[in-house]
């Protein structure tokens, strides 16, 4: 554990010096994510011009949910996104070899090697927005409730990257350059909508098979409406199952890996 922690600190240190080398790109990326946040906030603001309630939440409550998924996005962009971008290329070009022979978990190495410093600044912005939206809510604030919400959002970020990797890993078989990652990005839209808009089988799908609703919407529900054992149980079970599925796909993928063109 200690070895992994110190290795990760090296990753972060390298990423800092690399990021600051390309200052214009660094600034553009911060600006890009800021615009993404602005567009997402405005999307709901425009909808609330036409309705006082959406999926049972008023505008202030919806903003808490929006802040939640923006924070999940920022965590993902900071910790995993760049690594996920390179993953299909590592597999296709045979560069994965270099990670398989190292005396550390290849999954740890390939998914955490790059720390995105610019996105970390965006993460701080979303955290500030998160605090602001929570303070806008009526009624007393409970510290433990905020902590639980933050923990569930972090779990959401882990679940997000797990699904993403499961969608990327088919490149072991298809040898394409992207896997089904474009499809994943489209599905990611499901995370950005409150789960109550989905009815019947659709809600079941988005809570289990494609669990995007568990990433930010369920945590927001638990925060805004109170803790229900059932929600926590579903979140824990699905996250665990997806971890198992990821290790299975990874293992099967490695069996199929031909190290072509390395």
């Amino acid at each position: 554990m200690k070895r992994y922690l110190s290795l990760y600190l090296y990753f972060v240190r390298f990423s800092f010096s690399k990021s600051l080398e390309f200052r214009m790109d660094f600034t553009f990326r911060i600006l890009m994510d800021t615009i993404y946040y602005f567009v997402n906030i405005m999307f709901f603001k425009v909808i609330y011009l036409h309705t006082p309630l959406l999926a049972g939440w008023n505008e202030d409550q919806m903003m808490v949910f929006v802040a939640g998924y923006l924070m999940v996005d920022a965590i993902n962009m900071t910790l995993f996104s760049t690594n996920m971008w390179y993953l299909p290329f590592l597999i296709n070009k045979g560069d994965l070899d270099y990670y398989l022979i190292r005396p550390v978990s290849p999954l740890f190495f390939i998914s955490l090697r790059e720390f995105s410093v610019n996105s970390f600044i965006n993460f701080l912005m979303t955290a500030a927005f998160f605090i602001y939206t929570i303070l806008q809510l009526e009624g007393p604030l409970q510290f433990w409730n905020v902590m639980l919400y933050s923990a569930l959002l972090f779990n959401g970020a882990i679940l997000h990257v797990t699904i993403q990797m499961i969608m990327i890993l088919p490149v072991f078989w298809t040898q394409s350059s992207r896997g089904f990652v474009d499809l994943f990005y489209s599905m990611g839209l499901a995370m950005e909508r409150p789960h109550r808009i989905y009815r019947g089988w659709l809600r079941i799908i988005f809570s289990t098979i494609l669990p995007f609703a568990l990433i930010a919407s369920y945590p927001a529900k638990i925060f805004l409406e109170g803790l229900e054992g059932k929600d926590i149980l579903i979140t824990a079970l699905v996250t665990g199952s997806f971890w198992l599925l990821l290790s299975l796909v990874w293992k099967k993928g490695l069996e199929n890996y031909s190290s072509a063109s390395s």
């Binding site: 390309f22 214009m24 790109d25 553009f28 600006l31 890009m32 993404y36 567009v39």
Partner: peptide
């Protein structure tokens, strides 16, 4: 500039 893909993403937004 070295990398402008973020500008293209902004344009898409």
């Amino acid at each position: 500039a070295d990398n402008v893909w973020s500008l293209m993403v902004m344009l898409r937004f």
